[in-house]
Design a binder for these strands. Structure first.
Lengths: 227, 227
DNA sequence: CTGCATTGGAGTACACGTGCACAAGCGCCT
DNA sequence: AGGCGCTTGTGCACGTGTACTCCAATGCAG
């Protein structure tokens, strides 16, 4: 939704709204594959992810004509195609800056490695944390914040995760970009400024709750009126 | 975007897209207030949150005509109005189910209490974790999962947070709703099914990264073509 | 091999959200 | 007291995304 117009590649033009849904399809397909399903109809898959079947078909048709009429989509094949489109078939090294509670949660989150994301660096300024080994599978050692540029350069990191307090976020963001990172995942509760060409996605945990509170308040208001 | 049409209240009709931006405005205004600003123009505030000034003004005008022409918006006053609209002026008790890394991160997240959210229950099935005291300010004790219904009922909890593994999420969700919860914040990587009238917001950490990977792959593809 | 039922894919109409531009209103300065 | 400049608020047109409908392709059964 941010994403300046110029950024939108004209090559195959997949709408942003569709891109946002592709990972959801991917997730649902993985679940189906684990359950042993070989084929799935647009109707079934749509129900599983909570969209209409028409939307699902339109989304998938943007990627190509995978799927056979009269039968549906072959789970494995579709899964591969979506993975390829999302870039999940290749290896994405990433760094996480800030090893607080959230940083640890991210480092321990199992859903990364299975999707091609590999944590190659954990960085924190606190000397007490530096040296600590974190992560369930790959034991990654926390390194001092000063080595940020080294880690990024050595491993060719293109994606950086900011899990620092708000006051440190912008500085970290600038350093990441200067070192060569071009996609930022920001968990700090502020809008980070980036030069054009750099993608940012922000997730603010408190922000999501506020949206829920808004709807909840509306529900309460309506009930009062009704009574 | 999910949200069935019938759900959209006709009372004052604030578009969903605007609701999603209000917390961002709120956040920026808090930062401005801390910096000592008394008034702010739509241009300034828009720049701070990364939207156009027209969009910002239109959003704010939906709430009412706060702000004086020729001057701008009074920070404190606008902050109060947005807070009220979002329901941040009242107290929202909430429970967090699943005290893993993410659950801890949420429990320790400082941004909740200042926005009216109060964690009244931490629940986990693991006996080793039960009894542990978590949280920086309010020391909340982890209680066994069986007491979910008790906690929800006693404190009148309307908002529930699911921070469990995927396989446990749907069952927890059902129990929360049965106990009286009407808004679900879901961090488990799956789409939870809920009856109509219940709001759900899902945040999948891995999902966001996949969107970034998609854009990054597009950038790489374009560079290859160019060279 | 033929007919039928099923299902993906394309085309179309509509609604929502966005950006632009202008008018209305407030405060300040002369 | 009056005009001038600044900023808000809003009507309108545009583009994007979504929902709906139709059609043809395809597998399966007889």
């Amino acid at each position: 939704m941010p994403l300046p117009r110029s950024e939108r590649t004209a090559t195959t033009a997949v709408p942003e709204a569709t891109v946002a849904r592709l990972p959801v399809y991917h997730r649902a397909l993985v679940a189906l594959a684990e359950r042993g399903a070989t084929t799935v109809s647009s109707e079934e898959l749509a129900a599983a992810v909570g969209v209409t079947s028409a939307k699902l078909r339109k989304d998938l048709s943007l990627l190509g004509s995978y799927g056979t009429r009269g039968v549906g989509y072959e789970v494995d094949y579709l899964l591969y195609q979506i993975s390829r489109e999302l870039g999940l078939t290749q290896d994405w090294p990433l760094v996480i800056v800030g090893v607080g509670n959230l940083g640890r949660a991210l480092a321990n989150y199992g859903g990364f490695s299975s999707r091609g994301f590999r944590i190659v660096g954990l960085l924190d300024p606190d000397p007490e944390i530096v040296g600590e080994k974190i992560g369930a599978d790959f034991l990654v050692e926390v390194r001092p914040l000063d080595e940020l540029e080294d880690v990024v350069t050595e491993a060719g990191v293109l994606i950086g995760v900011i899990a620092t307090p708000a006051h440190a976020a912008q500085a970290v963001c600038d350093r990441l970009i200067a070192a060569g990172v071009r996609s930022i995942m920001n968990f700090a509760p502020l809008v980070v400024a980036v030069p054009p060409g750099v993608s940012v996605r922000s997730v603010d945990l408190g922000l999501e709750l506020q949206v829920l509170a808004f709807h909840e308040q509306r529900k309460l208001g309506r009930e009062e009126v009704r009574s």
